[in-house]
Design a protein around this nucleic acid. Sequence first.
DNA 1: ACTGGATCCTGACTGC
DNA 2: TGCAGTCAGGATCCAG
Length: 272
Amino acid sequence: MPELPEVETTRLGISPHISQKSVQQIIVRQRQLRWPIPDKLEATLTGLTIIKVKRRAKYLLLETCQDWVLMIHLGMSGNLRILRESEAAGKHDHLDIIFHDDTILRYNDVRKFGSVLLIKPPLFDHPLIKHLGPEPLSDAFNGQYLYEKAQNRKTAIKNLIMNSHVVVGVGNIYASEALFQAGIHPKKQVNHISLQNYMDLAKAIQNVLQNAITQGGTTLKDFVNEQGKPGYFQQSLSVYGRKGLACFQCKQPIENEKIGQRASYFCANCQR
DNA sequence: ACTGGATCCTGACTGC
DNA sequence: TGCAGTCAGGATCCAG
């Protein structure tokens, strides 16, 4: 399930195959995703050239030569692949974008939680982007920032860092991993955490995400890159999915509890 | 303004 | 073997 590293891996993977190419044809097989694929997509995008593939949070932004941007979210089970030649569409292959040189960008999403939308700049005004927090790997995100965001709240720390209005791109897996790395219990109330702990946590989040990007995304569920190949990050997970197994630091069993409706993994001994 | 819960969907897995 | 129930998970929406 794509988190920020998977989306970035996808961006880096598809960009060289579709940049500076013009759209020749679009095939939509299923319009009903998180939001319906707009009816005007085919007429609007056909003939336009993709200039650049950018990313904001977990949204991929395909900028065109005109005033349109194709905004793609992979939801939880979505993936984009590059095909060199036509290949029979599978059950959940909802969209093909075919370029003038026959390269195909194919969108697949089993659970249909993703979205494909057409938007106009300025992007920061778009309702889905307007209220997003800073990118975790940017200078705007640091311990001081997190500390300030926490002051008037009472929620559990794991909920805070997974809130995309606070910071984007930290999903369920990497939230558990970062909290373990920082030695903070996922249920700890956000206004009871010191500035020093927030500085450690911000660093841990950046460290976990950067490592995952370097390694090409996690393959824990069904993530595949632009070539349909899995990532390799799962070997590096310290707590996620390790319920009952020995903590790598202290050998106590890893615990599993629901926090904010999400499965959470932690070491009650190392994380306080 | 903030919080927790419900919600969208399908496939994998568990238990009877 | 079959069937029902549970779970996974991003992010929005809604009610309190």
